[in-house]
């Protein structure tokens, strides 16, 4: 259950970063377009977050079920992020921040225990 939530959280973070890497959406959120470097970093972070989610999902449930879980949660978090954009963009951003922090914290505390 916790792993499932971490996968969801990391995928959500991934979409937040990938979306903010797009000039148009960066402007909507921060008022200005991102510098090339910043946009690249955001995009890289986005891909890394979902890659991490996939690795965790596969370690948790095997390559077949893990991949299905990862892919399903990737789609759902995308829909969640985009649905929040017109209504609660700031909340969506904070949620990404909290999700990222919480999953990092959970991973660090887990890694010393059972997961890896």
């Amino acid at each position: 259950m916790t792993i499932w939530l971490i996968v969801l959280a990391l995928n959500y973070v991934s979409w937040a970063l990938l979306c903010l890497a797009v000039a148009r959406h960066h402007r909507q959120h921060f008022g200005a377009e991102a510098s090339l470097r910043r946009a690249r970093l955001l995009r890289l972070g986005g891909w890394l977050a979902t890659l991490a989610a996939w690795v965790i999902a596969v370690r948790w449930h095997g390559w077949d079920i893990g991949s299905v879980d990862w892919c399903a949660s990737w789609m759902l978090t995308a829909i969640t992020w985009v649905l929040l954009q017109p209504y609660r963009p700031r909340f969506a951003r904070w949620l990404a921040f909290i999700a990222g922090a919480a999953s990092l914290f959970a991973l660090i505390s887990f890694s010393s225990l059972t997961l890896f």
Partner: peptide, 22 residues
């Protein structure tokens, strides 16, 4: 099996449920 989602427990069934709703 991919379609009928009898694997993996309630967590994955919830994901399918929500994607089905989408």
């Amino acid at each position: 099996g991919l379609h009928r989602v009898q694997f993996g427990g309630a967590a994955i069934r919830w994901l399918y449920f929500l994607l089905g709703a989408a």
